[in-house]
């Protein structure tokens, strides 16, 4: 459980901005920034976070709250308070029209990248031996350790993969939404809503709720622009009223 998860998302956006500015290529930034951020995350996990795996959710959440503060301030110290922007790569800078609306080609790329990564993660978790061991470690860490797997390393690996995905998203979103200091908080709320409404630990649940939120907000922005900011909360409230465990939530042990 990580309250600083979206801080890494933000950090990746800033790192990508700098790399893109230095090399002039968005693709270099997309390749390098998530790896750099995941490496920072791995170092932090090794140094401090890993000590708390046995201490429970609360200690982890508290520690990551402190971490979020540090990352947020460090980002402001390095890159300043103002919002930055990145240009999308020239090959994706055009527009296309769909049903009379003109949209940037870059949006297609974002959708494709998200679907591809989600599919890859789901496939690894579902069909590979690594995925099986990860699921086993989540379900029963003691038994997995008894079978000869180093659960500590599995947790590290999962943490780093999660950070890589967050960082990748941060870079991909940078040309679309810009890079700004409060982006971590904004995304944290969205991410928590998605996870809670989808059901803790459910990949399809998270995917469906994320799509739902996107649709609700998209249409909301068009038909009720003033009220649209509240819609995600109504979605969450409605889901929790009828399915307290989330859409795909299993009964917790």
């Amino acid at each position: 459980m990580n309250a600083a998860h979206t801080s890494f998302y933000m950090l990746a956006g800033y790192v990508a901005t700098s790399i893109a500015a230095a090399t002039g290529s968005f693709w270099v930034a997309l390749a390098a920034a998530p790896v750099l951020v995941a490496a920072v995350g791995l170092a932090l996990e090794r140094a401090v976070l890993g000590r708390l795996y046995t201490a429970g959710h609360t200690a982890q959440l508290l520690l990551t709250v402190g971490l979020a503060y540090v990352i947020a301030e460090a980002t402001k110290m390095l890159w300043g308070d103002s919002a930055l922007s990145v240009a999308p790569p020239p090959s994706l800078a055009g527009h296309f029209s769909l049903l009379g609306a003109t949209l940037p080609v870059y949006h297609l790329f974002v959708i494709a990248a998200a679907v591809a990564l989600l599919g890859a993660v789901a496939a690894v978790l579902r069909f590979t031996r690594l995925g099986m061991v990860i699921r086993a470690a989540a379900a029963n860490p003691d038994m997995t350790a008894a079978l000869g797997y180093n659960v500590r390393h599995i947790y590290s690996a999962v943490f780093v993969i999660g950070l890589y995905l967050a960082a990748f998203a941060g870079v991909v979103m940078a040309p679309m939404a810009g890079v700004y200091p409060s982006m971590a908080d904004d995304q944290l709320v969205q991410a928590f809503i998605v996870v809670v409404a989808g059901g803790l630990g459910s990949l399809p649940g998270a995917f469906i709720v994320a799509m739902l939120l996107g649709l609700v907000q998209g249409f909301g922005n068009i038909y009720a622009a003033d009220e649209a900011v509240y819609f995600p909360f109504f979605v969450l409230g409605a889901v929790l009223l009828f399915r307290p465990l989330g859409l795909f939530g299993a009964k917790a042990a």
């Binding site: 459980m1 959710h57 709320v189 809503i193 809670v196 929790l240």
Partner: peptide, 11 residues
Amino acid sequence: GAYFSMTTLAI
């Protein structure tokens, strides 16, 4: 646990 924390955050 985390579920309570996330729900209160949304509120």
